[in-house]
Amino acid sequence: MPRIRKPVVPGWFTQDTGDFRLLGTRCRSCGSVFFPREDVFCRNPGCAGDDLEEVPLSRHGTVWSYTDGRYRPPAPYVSDPDTEWRPYTLVAVELVAERMVVLGQAAPGVGVADLAVGAEVELVPGILNEDAEHTWTTWHWRPVTTAPGPETTA
């Protein structure tokens, strides 16, 4: 029986692998963009707006910082405490159009030796964990080997 694909955090990214995007929200009053999404009020302390719209975020950004994770992270990350821990790479990516930095794991096989501050990366769908019934989906950042086209946001 095939596993059911489920996002680790519903509403934070699309399930469309053809146009995979993180989903944020934009305040219609001041234009501020948020991720993770905000559905109740504008987080901008200078704005009292509460009219928020969902927006797909840029798929490309630049590495702002990165590190290797040598500890077991807390939930929703899932790992078997009886298995050997394998470090992973965590990447902070600056999305220029949105004027924000978004954290995420690097794609499988990408380590700190493959990254540099200012290097371009792209968002790709990923798998956080699988169990007998589910494939838990997430996002990853992967280095770009060729220059992408212009980025647009909704």
Rank of each mutant, 00 (worst) to 15 (best):
R3D: 09
I4S: 15
K6Y: 03
V8Q: 12
V8F: 12
P10F: 07
P10K: 06
G11P: 02
W12T: 14
T14C: 07
T14K: 04
Q15F: 12
Q15V: 06
T17Y: 12
G18W: 04
D19S: 15
L23E: 13
L23T: 10
G24E: 00
G24M: 01
C27D: 00
C27S: 04
C30I: 07
G31M: 02
F35R: 06
D39P: 03
V40N: 07
F41M: 13
N44R: 04
G49P: 06
G49W: 10
D50C: 05
D50S: 13
L52E: 01
E53Q: 05
E54F: 15
P56L: 03
L57F: 09
G61Y: 02
T62V: 07
T62D: 01
T62N: 05
V63H: 06
W64C: 02
S65K: 03
T67G: 11
T67Q: 10
D68C: 11
D68F: 07
G69I: 15
G69V: 15
R70W: 15
R70D: 13
R72L: 00
R72E: 08
P73F: 06
P73W: 06
P74R: 11
Y77A: 13
V78F: 06
S79C: 13
D80N: 13
E84H: 14
R86I: 13
T89P: 04
E94M: 14
L95W: 03
V96L: 14
R99Y: 11
R99P: 06
M100H: 03
M100E: 00
V101I: 15
V102D: 01
L103I: 04
L103G: 10
Q105D: 12
A106E: 04
P108T: 08
G109W: 07
G111W: 03
V112D: 02
V112C: 12
A113E: 14
D114R: 08
L115R: 00
L115C: 04
A116W: 08
V117N: 07
A119R: 11
A119L: 12
I127D: 02
I127L: 11
L128M: 14
N129V: 04
E130N: 00
D131G: 09
D131N: 15
D131V: 03
H134N: 15
W136N: 01
W136G: 03
W136M: 05
T138W: 02
T138S: 03
W139Q: 04
H140Y: 10
P143A: 01
T145K: 09
T146I: 08
A147H: 09
P148N: 05
P150V: 01
A154R: 15
A154E: 14
